[in-house]
Every structure is written in C-alpha cells, then in structure tokens.
Design a protein around this nucleic acid. Structure first.
Lengths: 379, 379
DNA sequence: TCGACCGGTCG
DNA sequence: GCGACCGGTCG
C-alpha cells in the first residue's frame, strides 16, 4: 500500500490543515512562507502529493510550530509525557458526571469528575487551555500565577459542585503540564501553582470578610511576610517563620492582625514547615488556619489518579491527620477535597479537619469571623 | 531542489543505516521486519527512494527504536532537555581543572571542576553513566538509591580533591537526568538521590567511627526512624519528628543512642522541617548535626551553574545561615560544598558552619567522637 | 503500603 | 538576588 492512501497519513495532513486554519493562514500565505506555489499546499493537504520528512519539517516552520509540538499534537510523541494529561475534547458525559480521558505514557485512563455537565466542562477546558497557551507567547505579559489563579477562579465559578481538589489537580495542574512550554512545566507549576492558590483564597473570601471589617491578604513577597510576622510579634521568634495569608480586623479605625492562613496544595512532609510558626501564633492567641486542596493522587500503575488526599481515614489516620487531631498544631484544618474524611468528634486535641468546597456552605468564613470576634473581645 | 538530494535528508538515511548496523541487522532482516523486499531497504538507505513520515515511523518500529529517540539522535528534538546535562566525552583539561561541557536547550555551557585530572574524570563519567544506564534495563534488580550511592562513592574515591557538592550535582545528578529513563528522572532523583546521600554518609564514616565504638546508621524506613526517635525519648514529642541518620555509642555492652544527623542535599525552605526535631534533641542533650551538600546552583540564563550554595556570606548571611549562627537550631552544620563560607567566629548562637570534603581533614568524625565522649561522661 | 525525598522556577 | 513553591517516585 502506498502510504499516501494510508488513513494514518491522512491524519497528518488533516492536522496540518487544521493548524493552518487555526493560525488564520490561507493556502496562499502558507505557500508564500514556504517559497512554493499555492498548488503545492493544496495538493499536499489533499493527499495528492506526498510530503517527506524534510518537506514536513519546512512546512512546520512555515506554520510556526515545532516538530515536537506537531508530533505530540498527532499523538506520535505521547509516550514521552509521563505525567498524566487530559486529552482535549475527549471528555464525555456519564450520568451526572464527566469522564475525562487522561493520557499517560501512551495509555488512556479515565478520571471521573462528579457533578459536572459536559458543556460546562468543555467551556472550562477551553478557557484554561487558552490561558496557559497564551503564557507561551513571547509577548505575554501576564504572570504565571495570575493565569493559574484565573483558571482556578473560572473553574470554581463554572463548576461549583465539582470537588475543588479535582479542579486544582485535574483541570488546572494537568492542563498546565500539557500546555505550558516556556520552561519546565512541573517546576514552573511548583513556583506558580502554590502562589496562585494563595491569590485565589484571598480573592475568593475578601468580599465576604470585608463585610465584617476583616481584610484577608496573601503575603506574596518576603517583605510582606516579614511585615505580617512582625505585626504578630513573631519576628525571629521561631527561626524564620512562614505564613502565607494574613488576617486583619478593624479596631478603633486601625487594622489589627489577628491570625493567618497556612496554605498548601498538598501536604507531604512539608506541612511540618508551618508547624513552628503555627504553634507560636496559637501561643499568642492568634488564629492559625491550615488550608489545603489535599491534592494527592497516585498515578498508574500504583494508583488510579483519584485525588484521595493524604489524611487517611479517621479509623486509620495518616501522620498528617495527627498534626491536627492529636498534636493540635493548627487551630483548624480546612480541606477543599471532598475525598478527605472530616474529623470524627471529639478529637484528642480538640482541633478538627473540615471538608468543604467554595460554595455557600463553606464554613471557613464564619470560622474566621468568630476568630476575629473572640480576638477583639480580648483587646 | 528535490529533498531526496538535500544533505539534511542524507543525515537521516545515514542515521537509519548506522542504527541498523549497530543493531546487527542485515538489509534482508530489516526488510523482513517491515514486510518489504530487501531492495526497499537498499534504495531508501541509498537515497534512491524517498521515505515519508509514515514509512519512517514503521522503519523505526522495525529497528526497535522510538521516534523520539531517533529524532533526538539526529538532533531534531535536542531542544527538549531543559535541564543542563553534561555531554559525554566532551570534557577537557584546563590547567589543573576539567571543563565539563553542559547542554541546555541546545546551548553549551562550561562548568569548571577544580583539581581534577581529565583521565580520572572520564573514568568516573563512564562508571556513573553505565550505572545509571543499567537502571533502565528491564531485568535490573539494583535499587536506584544504591546505584546513586555507588556513583557518589566511586567519584569521591577517584576525585578526592573535587568539591563534593560538584560531585553530587554535576557528576551524579546531571548524569542521572541524562541517562535515567525508566520514570521521570527528576522526580526519581528526588526520591532516590536524598536517600543515596544518607547511605553514603553511613558507609563513608562507619569504619572510622566503629574504631571508637560508635555506630552510624542511616534510617531508611519509617520503622527505623520511629525506633530511633523512641530510643531518644522523642516519640510523638514534636509532632512527627524527622531524623535521617542515628548515632549510637557502646556503653556497658549496650548500644546507646546519643545523637543523629539531619541530611539534606540542598536546604531551600526544607531545612525548617528538621528544626523542631533538632531543637528537641538538643534539649535532651542529644547531638544534632546538620549535614548538607549545600547543592544549589542556578541554571542559565539567571545563573552560571556554579554550586554557589544557599548560605550567603558571613557579611551578607541568608536566612539559612541564621538557622545555625543566630538561632542555633542545630549543634553544628557541616557543608560539603567548598563554595560555602564557613562561620566567622564567634557566632551569636555559638553554633557554627564547617566546610569540609570527605578527605583526611574532615572534622565531622572528631565532632561525633567528642559528642559521644561528652554524652558518655554524663551517663 | 503511604511516607519523605529535592531543585527549577520566577517573582 | 535569593526565597519558597510542590508532586512523581519507589521503597
């Protein structure tokens, strides 16, 4: 069989045509880029003329995309991505859920996103993908953390019933890994994803808390962190303390710091980073909140990509659960992962894990408001 | 110009021929794999017949290599490795030093390895590369951490004057990134590299310390860690404590734990993980040592790949220096990075940073021996 | 098993 | 300039 009649070859030419059209190029314009006549483009796209490797390579240069991206686009390099990423446009509705197709080392895995309508999902998928692809543009001026924040915000708004941890991991993180190309996507995610979470928390709660005279402020710079810690009287007290988000109340016309939020996408051993600061805060009567997406899923072959989190169950608790329930190293923990098991009361330390989403029943704002009231009463 | 006459195309066919010959396949055998006649192979290799992408893809399957490996082989995908890796066999002697050629996103960067002879360097490069390539074999039975340990041990033995931090980062880590393919090399490194360091510390010092009746033991499993912490009386005392290496002395025929080593390849914010445990140990009169490769180098374009470390200078100290010199969160810190600035005495806390290599002047063993003597005197 | 390992990033 | 962000790994 001549490969010009092979359906797999047609996939290649179809992809070339699709890319050309997406870039808004006519056959004439592409031909000009390639130094050829329009008929060359027309014949090749119409499978009347076979492209060899060098011609393909030049064609891709004319289209302004790399060979690697093209091969990934047609799925020939899929084996190199060994972090699971969603395949765009391949999700399907299954009852009240959406099944997301994930690609990992050439194999496809299903991830179920509960309580999601396909059209909304696809809208979010498109929005997020465009945000992250835009970061690749040389002329891009947006900060990575801003783009990720906007992705989270959009998804939370459009898919209010979906597990926030799934939004963070499967919709946002995995799309970032798939679409962000400027630097090493995973390390870039580390840098930008965590801060995006802090920004989201600030923006999401600021309006509601402002109504109670409370200001919530993400501490993005070292200077901001240091200032907040100094205001709490924790300057240099516990080594170099760490705090992600500061909480201020208004008292006699002044902003008074009364607590803070430690924010972690996932906990790992890193939760212990925050313990000394948290314990010191609590010792001073300041509110210390641990907020997490509890975003841990195990990829195949060990796991199944479900965001099971790291707290274990109440009967079979993990070390991290002990930080809250036994040691009481934080005043409270809010997990935005619906798979997390909330604390069974009473706990040994009196501190507990709440499980929440960002909807109207989210208990976090009231917890902060109560904290401020208690703090103010002692001023 | 017909691309069949393009010299770039000849590079492709030449590479195909070379791979076939390296695999010990005849034209006949390859043709059989492809379901074609020998003349098809002959004509394609001889540039009498043009291969398109599909044919190439099938050809590569017939050769048993992946498209990705092939494209990397001919240099078409070289831009994808965006962690700097050494180019094998490209190092050169420059006075008493070796200049290592590093590849990062298609550009070459020089890294100077001081006090190294080229022949020794090449011997180490070869040894390490073979170790890591062997990990890719499906029949491989060696643990990753063991292979990395052996790489460090061999390099330290062969290149005793070379900065240990450079050994860890430039000889071992970067070779691992280049050669390890089974899973995601960087994440695998995280898992295995840190434990390899602990094993190395145990093995390197065990003989010397055994002569003084001291046992040094890497705590590789959670059970071992928990046992050691319990022996120290730190079970559950400071949340869930962390310790990497335990130190035992012999007293009245019994093994008595008298301290431990916190081991970190690089510090980042993670040094604070170990602070609560260290402080608790010191509070009980147990010796708490921080041992690090201080392995931080900034890749281009920001940095120049030199392992500058994270302690800053004594005049312009970083936060991490304060953990030792100001807060005294550890009894002592040993940095195996010759770029680290040792403490200027006296320090605020009385605790100090030593800079060392693994040679005969390494002060660590004596520090441990003195620690044991002081501990024993109080028993 | 489910824990803790670490470094490129980018602000 | 230099800090802290996090998740695949594999034992």
């Amino acid at each position: 069989m001549r490969s010009i009649h092979d359906p797999r070859y047609h996939l290649i030419t179809a992809a070339l045509k699709e890319i050309r059209e997406k870039k808004g190029l006519t056959q004439d314009e592409l031909a000009a880029n390639l130094g050829k006549k329009q008929s060359y483009v027309s014949k090749a796209e119409g499978n009347e003329r076979r492209l060899d490797l060098l011609e393909l390579s030049e064609w891709l240069i004319g289209l302004g995309i790399t060979l690697k991206d093209f091969l990934q686009n047609i799925g020939w390099l899929s084996e190199e991505l060994s972090v699971a990423v969603p395949i765009k446009g391949q999700a399907s509705q299954q009852g009240k859920d959406v099944v997301q197709k994930m690609l990992l080392q050439g194999k496809s895995y299903d991830v179920v996103l509960k309580n999601v309508a396909l059209d909304k999902y696809l809208e979010v998928e498109e929005f997020i993908s465009n945000k992250f692809l835009a970061l690749n543009e040389p002329k891009n001026k947006q900060k990575n953390r801003e783009a990720i924040f906007e992705a989270i915000e959009f998804a939370v708004k459009k898919l209010p019933k979906l597990n926030p941890s799934d939004i963070y991991v499967h919709l946002v993180y995995r799309a970032y890994i798939r679409d962000y190309k400027r630097t090493r996507a995973e390390q870039s995610w580390v840098r930008a994803g965590g801060e995006a979470m802090e920004i989201f928390v600030e923006k999401h709660y600021s309006k509601l808390l402002a109504a109670e005279g409370i200001t919530i402020k993400a501490l993005l710079s070292g200077a901001e962190k240091a200032k907040a810690l100094k205001e709490m009287g924790l300057e240099g007290v516990v080594g170099d303390s760490k705090l992600d988000i500061a909480l201020y109340g208004t008292h006699k016309g002044k902003q008074v710091i009364f607590g803070g939020i430690h924010s972690k996408a996932s906990l790992a051993e890193r939760v212990s980073d925050d313990v000394p600061c948290s314990v010191a805060m609590m010792g001073l009567g300041l509110q210390s909140i641990l907020l997490t997406f509890d975003a841990k899923s195990y990829p195949p072959p060990q796991g199944n990509l479900v965001t099971i989190g790291e707290f274990g169950t109440t009967d079979n608790p993990s070390d991290k659960r002990h930080y809250i329930e036994s040691h009481g190293s934080f005043d409270v923990c809010f997990s935005y992962n619906l798979h997390t098991y909330p604390s069974k009361l009473p706990t040994k330390s009196g501190k507990q894990i709440y499980v929440s989403d960002f909807g109207p029943d989210d208990p976090l704002p009231q917890f902060i408001i109560d904290g401020w009231k208690a703090f103010k009463a002692k001023l």
